Simulated scan of single mutants.
Amino acid sequence: MRVPKRLLTAALVTTASLTLPISTSAAQGPVAETVSAPRAAAPCGGVASSPIFGVWGPAGRSSCSFLGSSASTKLTYTVWIPPGTQQSATVQVWGYTNGVGNWFSAGNIKSSTANTRVAVPWGNNAATPRIQVMSTNVGMANVSFSH
Protein backbone atom coordinates (compact mmCIF):
# COMPACT_ATOMS: atom_id res chain seq x y z
CA MET A 1 0.00 0.00 0.00
CA ARG A 2 1.34 3.37 -0.94
CA VAL A 3 0.99 6.21 1.58
CA PRO A 4 0.46 9.68 0.08
CA LYS A 5 3.22 12.16 0.90
CA ARG A 6 0.72 14.66 2.32
CA LEU A 7 -0.39 12.02 4.84
CA LEU A 8 3.19 11.43 5.98
CA THR A 9 3.85 15.15 6.48
CA ALA A 10 0.54 15.84 8.19
CA ALA A 11 1.78 14.68 11.60
CA LEU A 12 3.01 17.75 13.42
CA VAL A 13 4.55 17.61 16.85
CA THR A 14 4.69 20.76 18.94
CA THR A 15 5.31 21.33 22.62
CA ALA A 16 1.61 21.98 23.23
CA SER A 17 -0.11 19.28 21.22
CA LEU A 18 0.28 16.25 19.04
CA THR A 19 -1.54 16.06 15.71
CA LEU A 20 -1.93 12.65 14.12
CA PRO A 21 -3.56 11.66 10.84
CA ILE A 22 -6.14 8.98 11.59
CA SER A 23 -7.99 8.46 8.32
CA THR A 24 -8.26 9.72 4.78
CA SER A 25 -11.16 10.69 2.63
CA ALA A 26 -11.10 11.23 -1.12
CA ALA A 27 -13.07 14.45 -0.73
CA GLN A 28 -11.45 15.87 2.40
CA GLY A 29 -7.91 14.48 2.55
CA PRO A 30 -6.37 13.56 5.90
CA VAL A 31 -8.50 13.91 9.02
CA ALA A 32 -6.50 14.64 12.16
CA GLU A 33 -7.15 14.45 15.88
CA THR A 34 -5.36 16.73 18.33
CA VAL A 35 -4.36 15.21 21.66
CA SER A 36 -3.01 17.29 24.53
CA ALA A 37 0.58 16.59 25.49
CA PRO A 38 0.94 14.65 28.74
CA ARG A 39 1.29 16.82 31.80
CA ALA A 40 3.36 16.14 34.88
CA ALA A 41 1.41 14.42 37.63
CA ALA A 42 0.38 16.68 40.48
CA PRO A 43 2.15 15.80 43.71
CA CYS A 44 0.09 13.97 46.29
CA GLY A 45 -0.08 15.54 49.72
CA GLY A 46 -1.68 18.28 51.76
CA VAL A 47 -1.46 20.43 54.88
CA ALA A 48 -2.45 19.89 58.51
CA SER A 49 -2.62 22.54 61.22
CA SER A 50 -2.72 22.80 64.98
CA PRO A 51 -4.47 25.91 66.27
CA ILE A 52 -2.54 26.36 69.54
CA PHE A 53 0.23 24.84 71.67
CA GLY A 54 -0.42 21.32 72.95
CA VAL A 55 -3.60 20.63 70.94
CA TRP A 56 -3.91 18.06 68.14
CA GLY A 57 -5.46 19.69 65.13
CA PRO A 58 -7.80 17.93 62.71
CA ALA A 59 -6.22 15.39 60.38
CA GLY A 60 -4.97 16.78 57.08
CA ARG A 61 -5.94 14.50 54.19
CA SER A 62 -3.89 13.94 51.04
CA SER A 63 -5.10 15.06 47.64
CA CYS A 64 -4.59 11.44 46.43
CA SER A 65 -5.40 7.98 47.73
CA PHE A 66 -2.84 5.19 48.00
CA LEU A 67 -3.31 1.52 47.10
CA GLY A 68 -1.05 -1.06 48.74
CA SER A 69 -0.21 -4.07 46.61
CA SER A 70 0.92 -6.58 49.23
CA ALA A 71 1.08 -7.13 52.97
CA SER A 72 4.64 -5.73 53.02
CA THR A 73 3.81 -2.43 51.25
CA LYS A 74 5.09 0.69 53.02
CA LEU A 75 4.10 4.31 52.42
CA THR A 76 6.78 6.99 52.76
CA TYR A 77 5.63 10.42 53.94
CA THR A 78 7.74 13.56 53.62
CA VAL A 79 6.73 16.24 56.14
CA TRP A 80 7.98 19.81 56.53
CA ILE A 81 7.21 23.21 57.96
CA PRO A 82 7.84 26.12 55.60
CA PRO A 83 11.27 27.68 56.36
CA GLY A 84 11.41 30.98 58.19
CA THR A 85 8.03 30.59 59.93
CA GLN A 86 9.50 29.90 63.40
CA GLN A 87 7.02 27.04 63.91
CA SER A 88 7.52 23.61 65.45
CA ALA A 89 5.22 20.62 65.82
CA THR A 90 4.86 16.98 66.77
CA VAL A 91 3.61 15.03 63.76
CA GLN A 92 1.81 11.71 63.40
CA VAL A 93 1.17 9.93 60.09
CA TRP A 94 -1.49 7.34 59.24
CA GLY A 95 -0.65 3.75 58.37
CA TYR A 96 -1.98 0.20 58.74
CA THR A 97 -0.87 -2.78 60.82
CA ASN A 98 -2.61 -6.06 59.98
CA GLY A 99 -5.41 -4.15 58.26
CA VAL A 100 -6.07 -1.85 61.23
CA GLY A 101 -5.40 1.90 60.88
CA ASN A 102 -3.02 3.49 63.39
CA TRP A 103 -1.16 6.74 63.96
CA PHE A 104 2.65 6.48 63.74
CA SER A 105 5.05 9.10 65.09
CA ALA A 106 6.97 11.16 62.55
CA GLY A 107 8.73 12.99 65.38
CA ASN A 108 9.13 16.65 66.22
CA ILE A 109 9.90 19.00 63.37
CA LYS A 110 10.82 22.67 63.12
CA SER A 111 10.81 25.20 60.33
CA SER A 112 14.61 25.30 60.59
CA THR A 113 15.07 21.58 59.88
CA ALA A 114 15.17 19.78 56.54
CA ASN A 115 12.29 17.66 55.31
CA THR A 116 11.56 14.64 57.50
CA ARG A 117 10.82 11.30 55.84
CA VAL A 118 9.09 8.41 57.56
CA ALA A 119 8.03 5.05 56.09
CA VAL A 120 5.04 3.35 57.71
CA PRO A 121 3.39 -0.01 57.08
CA TRP A 122 0.44 0.23 54.67
CA GLY A 123 -0.18 -3.35 53.60
CA ASN A 124 -2.82 -4.29 51.06
CA ASN A 125 -5.09 -1.33 51.88
CA ALA A 126 -6.66 1.38 49.75
CA ALA A 127 -7.10 4.64 51.66
CA THR A 128 -6.27 8.33 51.77
CA PRO A 129 -3.03 9.12 53.64
CA ARG A 130 -3.31 11.72 56.37
CA ILE A 131 -1.28 13.45 59.05
CA GLN A 132 -2.06 15.00 62.42
CA VAL A 133 -0.18 17.90 63.98
CA MET A 134 0.26 19.28 67.51
CA SER A 135 1.93 22.67 67.86
CA THR A 136 4.95 22.72 70.19
CA ASN A 137 5.43 26.48 70.02
CA VAL A 138 3.30 29.39 71.18
CA GLY A 139 0.69 29.78 68.49
CA MET A 140 -0.25 27.61 65.56
CA ALA A 141 1.72 25.22 63.39
CA ASN A 142 1.14 24.40 59.71
CA VAL A 143 2.79 21.23 58.41
CA SER A 144 2.88 20.26 54.72
CA PHE A 145 3.30 16.69 53.54
CA SER A 146 3.67 14.61 50.42
CA HIS A 147 3.86 10.89 49.65
Score class of each variant (00 low, 15 high):
Gly54His: 05
Ser17Pro: 00
Phe145Pro: 09
Ile109Arg: 00
Gly107Ala: 03
Ala106Lys: 12
Ser23Gly: 14
Phe53Asp: 14
Leu75Glu: 06
Gly107Pro: 02
Cys44Gly: 13
Ala89Gly: 06
Thr76Asn: 02
Ala114Leu: 09
Trp94Ile: 07
Met1Glu: 09
Ser135Glu: 02
Ser25Leu: 08
Lys110Phe: 03
Met140Arg: 12
Asn142Leu: 11
Pro82Gln: 10
Ile131Ser: 08
Arg61Phe: 10
Ser135Ile: 05
Asn125Arg: 04
Val118Pro: 03
Leu8Ser: 01
Gly95Met: 11
Pro129Gln: 11
Gly46Pro: 05
Trp80Ala: 14
Gly29Val: 04
Gly45Ile: 00
Val55Ala: 12
Ala114Gly: 07
Gly139Ala: 09
Met1Ile: 09
Ala71Glu: 10
Ser17Asn: 01
Gln132Cys: 08
Asn115Leu: 07
Thr24Phe: 10
Ala127Met: 00
Arg6His: 12
Pro43Val: 05
Ala71Lys: 05
Val55Leu: 14
Val143Gln: 05
Thr14Trp: 01
Val93Gln: 13
Pro121Tyr: 10
Met134Phe: 06
Ser146Gln: 14
Val118Asp: 05
Thr76Met: 01
Thr14Tyr: 00
Ala106Phe: 11
Ala42Asp: 12
Ser135Met: 01
Ala26Asn: 03
Thr15Arg: 15
Arg39Leu: 14
Ala37Arg: 15
Thr113Ser: 11
Arg6Val: 02
Pro121Gly: 04
Asn98Cys: 03
Ala40Ile: 09
Phe66Thr: 01
Pro51Lys: 02
Ile109His: 04
Thr9Ala: 12
Ala41Asp: 11
Asn142Pro: 01
Ser105Gln: 07
Ala106Gln: 07
Ser50Leu: 12
Thr136Ala: 02
Gly54Lys: 06
Ser62Met: 06
Ser135Phe: 01
Gly68Gln: 03
Gln87Ser: 07
Tyr77Ile: 10
Leu8Glu: 09
Ala10Thr: 14
Arg2Cys: 02
Leu12Ile: 13
Val3Ile: 09
Ser65Tyr: 09
Phe53His: 12
Gly139Arg: 13
Leu8Pro: 00
Pro51Gly: 09
Trp103Ala: 13
Asn137Ile: 14
Gly29Trp: 10
Gly57Leu: 07
Val35Met: 10
Ala119Asp: 04
Val93Asp: 09
Pro82Thr: 15
Val120Ala: 04
Glu33Ala: 13
Gly29Ile: 05
Ala59Tyr: 08
Val91Arg: 11
Gly99His: 03
Ala11Glu: 08
Tyr77Arg: 11
Val118Met: 06
Val47His: 07
Pro30Thr: 06
Leu8Asp: 01
Gly101Asp: 14
Gly123Pro: 06
Gly139Glu: 11
Arg117Asn: 15
Leu20Cys: 06
Thr34Val: 15
Asn125Gln: 14
Ser49Ile: 14
